[in-house]
Design a protein around this nucleic acid. Structure first.
Lengths: 128, 128
DNA sequence: GTAACTGGTTACCATTAGGTTACCGGTTAC
DNA sequence: GTAACCGGTAACCTAATGGTAACCAGTTAC
C-alpha cells in the first residue's frame, strides 16, 4: 500500500506551487534583513545616505551601500548626484516602489499584532 | 550652517520609526528564504516531512528540519508523533499561522505583478 | 593647522545561512 | 538479498551577510 504513495506528489501539488512560486519570486527580490526597512525610510522622505543610515538603526555603511545598489538594480531607487561642492547624493524612490505598499502594510500590521501577542504571553507567564 | 544640520535627526524620525519597527519585528520572525514557503506548503495540507520537502523544491532536509524547529518555537507549527511502526510524524499549522494570511496574500500578489513587469521589460528590450 | 563632516569604497574578518554527502534504525516491496 | 522509504542527524563545506577600521577628496568649523 505504501507503493501507491511512494512516488506520489504531495497533496494539492499544483495548487500549492501556484501559491508558492509568486511568494518565492517576491522574497527573491526583497531578501535580507534590510531591504524593506531601507525602502520604508526612503518612502518617509529620507534621501541622503547618512539620513538613511541614522534612520535604519544598526545598518553599517557598507551594507547600506550594497543594499542601495541592489534596490537601484531592481528599479526601486534612483541615485541622483548633484555637482555641488561637496557633491550631494540623493536616493529617490521610484513609482514602482509604491506597488509594495500592500506588502509593507501587511507586515506592519502583523508585526504590531505579533508584538502584542508576545507581550501577552509574557504577562501570562508572570501571572501563572 | 552645516553645524545646525550635523547632529540632527533625519526627517520624520519618530513617525518613521513607528513605520519601521513593526516591519522589522515581522522580518525578525519570518527571516530567511524558506519560512514562508514552508508555511504555505503546510497550510495547503502537507503535513509529512517528505511531503513538505517535495513541495518546497530545492530545500535540503537539514534546512527543512531547522526551519520546522524555528517555526515550532515561534508557535506556527506543532509537531505530532504517532507511535505507529515506523513512527509517523506530522507537522500541523496552528491557528496563529492564519494571522499571516494578509502577509502571504500581499506577497503573492506582488510576486505575480513583479513577474509580469519583468516579462514586459524583456519584451521591450527585444522590440527596442 | 587641526579636526570633523560628506558619500561613500576597500580590505579584512566573523558569523550565519544554506547546501552536500553519508548515514542511522526499522519497514515495506520485489 | 536488494533497494527504497521514513524522519531525520552529523560532519563538512561554500556563499552570503554583517561588522570594523582605514581611507579618499573637498569643505567647513575652530
Amino acid at each position: 500500500m505504501l507503493k501507491a504513495v511512494k512516488n506520489g506528489k504531495p497533496k494539492n501539488h499544483k495548487e500549492c506551487m501556484d501559491a508558492l512560486v509568486p511568494v518565492q519570486d517576491a522574497l527573491y527580490v526583497l531578501n535580507g534583513k534590510w531591504k524593506l526597512p531601507v525602502i520604508i525610510a526612503l518612502r518617509k522622505g529620507n534621501k541622503r545616505f547618512t539620513d538613511i543610515q541614522k534612520q535604519v538603526q544598526g545598518i553599517a555603511a557598507k551594507v547600506l551601500s550594497h543594499e542601495l545598489k541592489e534596490l537601484e538594480l531592481n528599479g526601486f531607487v534612483e541615485r541622483v548626484v548633484y555637482n555641488t561642492t561637496p557633491v550631494t547624493v540623493e536616493y529617490i524612490v521610484t513609482d514602482y516602489t509604491d506597488t509594495l505598499e500592500e506588502v509593507i502594510t501587511a507586515l506592519h500590521n502583523w508585526g504590531l499584532a505579533h508584538r502584542n501577542k508576545i507581550r501577552a504571553q509574557m504577562k501570562e507567564r508572570k501571572a501563572g
